[in-house]
Amino acid sequence: MKITLITVGKIKEKYLKDAIAEYSKRLRKYCRLEIIEVNDEKTPDQASALAEEEIRRKEGERILRYLKDDAYVITLEIEGKMIGSKDLADKINHLGIQGKSHVIFVIGGSIGLGTAVLKRSDYALSFSKMTFPHQLMRVILLEQIYRSYRIIHGEPYHK
């Protein structure tokens, strides 16, 4: 299976780059992993709702270029469905059984995802009602994908 992460913005912090590299290395055993970074838009302080919508639209256009028609798209959204690690593993495993060979996870920018991206989503996933920095979310998501594959293969992983 191919797993793609499409993310808005660049990672600047070395400790996050190191964690992403580590989980990317671990995942090679289980899947083909691709991480695509699209440029973010600068959000001015006190931006109006209209300005924020325009930012989400522009970032969304960049994301949509990479969403393949035959891929299963999972967007990370605060209002998405909250599931446990075992449920995520079951979802990934079930998608493979159904013949889905490409799953794309989308992490938006600091003000979320645009309407067009949300409409293309096949599944809205939430990790928490809390807001996390989108750079840190990459590490959390990669860890959970790795954990999912360990569960799928019946391999031990700390709880």
Score class of each variant (00 low, 15 high):
R150L: 07
E61D: 12
L33K: 14
K86W: 08
I140P: 02
L125Q: 12
I20E: 14
D70H: 08
K12R: 10
R147Y: 07
V8T: 02
K81V: 13
I55C: 00
D45W: 04
E79P: 02
K129L: 05
S24Y: 12
G80Y: 09
N39C: 02
E53I: 00
Q98P: 01
L76P: 03
G112K: 01
H102T: 03
T131S: 13
F105G: 07
Q98R: 15
L16N: 06
I78C: 03
S121F: 08
T4C: 10
L67P: 02
S128T: 10
G96F: 10
Q144V: 06
T7A: 15
S85W: 07
K58C: 00
Y72C: 08
A71I: 01
L27V: 14
D90L: 13
R138E: 11
F127Y: 09
T131L: 05
V103A: 08
L141N: 08
I78D: 06
Y15W: 14
V73E: 10
I151M: 11
G99H: 06
I145G: 07
S101P: 00
L95M: 13
I107M: 07
I104Q: 13
Y123C: 09
K42S: 05
Y66D: 02
R120S: 08
G109F: 00
R65H: 06
Y30E: 14
F105Y: 14
Q135R: 06
K159M: 00
K81D: 14
T131M: 05
I104E: 11
D40Y: 03
G9L: 05
K100C: 12
L113Q: 05
Y66L: 01
E143H: 09
R120W: 09
Y15F: 14
A47C: 04
S126W: 04
L5E: 04
D40Q: 13
V117W: 03
S110Q: 04
T115V: 03
G9M: 04
K10L: 04
L76F: 07
M137N: 05
D40I: 01
V117Q: 07
S148Y: 08
L95G: 11
R57G: 00
Q135A: 12
D87A: 15
N93I: 01
E53V: 00
D122C: 12
L142Q: 10
R62L: 02
K68N: 06
E77R: 05
